[in-house]
Nucleic acid binder design. Structure first.
Lengths: 379, 379
DNA sequence: CGTTATCTCGTGTACGTTACCGTTTATCCA
DNA sequence: TGGATAAACGGTAACGTACACGAGATAACG
């Protein structure tokens, strides 16, 4: 069979040791090494130990290119997130997909969208486990319902990344979110800069039971007294992320207590509040700060009726979650227990650039806001 | 219970057509196809045309896993950036490296640092071209010097990504930066929110000749009148990114003109200005907004002596630049001509979370950040 | 007509991994 | 002790690509 002589080039490229190196170091076959490294049956425990030791000693790292080439498909990752408050989660999903695209066919995503109010997350995760995905990215709608599923996944050795709400103590890999306390504190600091007498402040949240919301409240209540000399009183309204409830409660608030000096809507459910205030011609007179960005909010921001909104980096959260998971799956390096992003203020001046970068909402430039010709360097 | 029949499943994973498919479709060998696809010598023009047509028809995409497996090394990308104003560029470099790490051994980076004031960029790029890298990420120190080199690289079919300064019209792949105009406009808007009489404003820039700086100036001068009723006068100081010059000019300004109402330092060279103001006990009385974040600036931010700083996402700029370049090299998809990031305000409340995410500067304790002590603007 | 150079193209091997099949060894029961 | 059965392990094809090498054809030259 061997006909001609080979004149292979020396090819002195330093390659990381492969499964073959381990095999010849131990004087066994690559098949055995393969079984040892992948918990496959049909191998003697002693042999397996020797292989694992040799692999560790040589610093073996599986060659993903070869693995992908052989198996024909890459890692599969389930992306489980709610449909509700769609704009935020759509951005998260986009962040995940963008990050995954960088790896081409070597990573495959499977989307599972579920209704936030029907505990659909359980079904989604269960489905993902059935499909034997390599990892799960999850935005828990109701963390209490998600916890057992996350525990189950972790026991199956399937890492779970939580975005937004956490589910700690379940064995989840990492929690990615914006820092809620800082969000509230940032708003407090900004309000303090306004140089106005702020005696009565209203804060709209979803529920005190949600740690995200209670932390935001704690943040602003901790921050405002530090920047404002006057004694402040607080109106805390729990709207439970329900539009009708938000509308009803805000109208009630506005009608009963007149001397409101600032409003902070700490949930994405800000539209009903804004509309109620608009009807009473309060916008523009009372400083309002909201959370997140969605199309209906844009006119309020552009007109200055809403001073600023706290941006929570949905796209980045998705990207970071994916990167952490991918890195763990590939290299085995565990990310930090928790990755917190800084909340940032978005105002009229930087709104359009932000949108252009993250989405396709407002392609229109706002008149004189930007000169038509692009920036061009001239020597 | 398994079926009696061995009958393995057809394993019909839909694979994208490879070089082999093209070969058998045309009835030629894979070697010929290889030569055609890679502009290798020794192939008849007609044959090459047929191959290219067939490749296009079948939607051929090279299998990077196989390519990497065979060749033993991945894409090599040169990262050329200055040493000066180190913190910003260090972050850019970190962003590039982080993004590259996700691809493991399939991407290799080569760092070329050069001195900004000695036209070192030319040598760096030249060196990269010699090494026959697949792409170049460049922060032009002196764009006018970089232009011919970028043109040369583009003619060699080596894509160049510019971060910060642009070199447009040279064939560079894409320009990544923060939107300078928005930066200035954001500061103007924020100052407007302060609700104070701002009649005399000082803006420190590097040079009017740098488009980045002149755009920031244009931004704030366009923005302030929209938020402040009073007529404003402007002091524009060009410090040429030189610390001594900045110190001298700021002291001269502070001593000659007393009624300053706000200061915007639009370059990273803000320390001399702050020190000059501090010596005259002006900090805390006159609102100051700076640019970028570096260790020496932290005390000013934490104490409230600097109200806010405009963050330009150095890490993200690096990451985005890399991703755009990588995507282009792998899929051939050209990114947008220009990718502009939104500038964002960093204040005390979100400073530490930001640092934790991007670097290791910040001290661990959140006690300091959330201590009751604070400095408000007086007067 | 023979020799050689040039151009064009086919062939073979290797990359690291996995799946599958074949082979050897150990265990157990009749 | 023979034979059956399973456990443990060896061997190899194949994934898609890159590249060295050689075969075949054609043309140019003596």
């Amino acid at each position: 069979m061997q006909s001609s002589k080979r004149a292979t080039t020396p090819q002195r490229i330093e390659r990381s040791p492969g499964i073959k190196k381990i095999a010849e170091k131990l004087g066994i076959s690559i098949g055995t090494v393969d079984r040892a490294l992948h918990d496959r049956p049909g191998i003697h425990p002693d042999t397996k130990k020797r292989v694992m030791a040799a692999a560790a000693e040589l610093g073996y790292r599986p060659n993903l290119a070869a693995r992908f080439l052989k198996s024909g498909k890459g890692l599969t990752i389930a992306v489980c997130l709610p449909r509700a408050i769609a704009h935020f989660f759509d951005d998260v999903r986009m962040g995940v997909h963008r990050a995954a695209e960088a790896h081409g066919a070597m990573v495959e995503l499977i989307d599972y969208s579920f209704s936030r109010f029907e505990e659909g997350e359980a079904a989604a995760v269960e489905e993902a486990l059935k499909k034997r995905v390599n990892g799960i990215i999850l935005v828990p709608g109701r963390p209490s319902h998600a916890r057992p599923l996350i525990g189950k996944a972790s026991r199956c050795n399937i890492p779970v990344v939580c975005i937004g709400s956490d589910a700690d103590g379940t064995g989840r890999l990492v929690h990615v979110a914006t820092d809620s306390f800082s969000s509230g504190a940032l708003v407090g600091e900004f309000l303090g800069c306004l140089n106005r007498p702020l005696r009565r402040l209203a804060v709209f949240i979803g529920s005190r039971g949600t740690s995200d919301h209670s932390e935001k409240l704690r943040g602003i209540q901790d921050s405002v007294p530090r920047h404002i000399r006057l004694k402040t009183t607080w109106e805390v309204i729990e709207a439970h992320d329900n539009a009708r409830e938000a509308q009803h409660l805000s109208e009630k608030l506005l009608d009963t207590s007149r001397g409101l000096h600032a409003v902070y809507v700490a949930t994405a459910n800000s539209l009903p509040v804004l509309q109620a205030m608009d009807r009473r011609s309060l916008l523009g007179r009372i400083p309002v700060i909201t959370t997140d960005i969605y199309p209906e909010l844009l006119p309020y921001l552009r007109s200055g009726k809403v001073l600023a909104t706290v941006y929570q980096h949905p796209v980045s959260q998705g990207r970071i979650a994916f990167d952490a998971l991918h890195r763990f799956l590939v290299t085995g390096v565990r990310p930090a227990e928790r990755i917190l992003l800084p909340p940032l203020l978005v105002m009229r001046s930087n709104l359009d650039i932000l949108l252009e970068r993250s989405r396709g909402w407002s392609r229109r430039s706002q008149g004189a806001q930007r000169s038509p010709e692009s920036v061009c360097l001239k020597g």
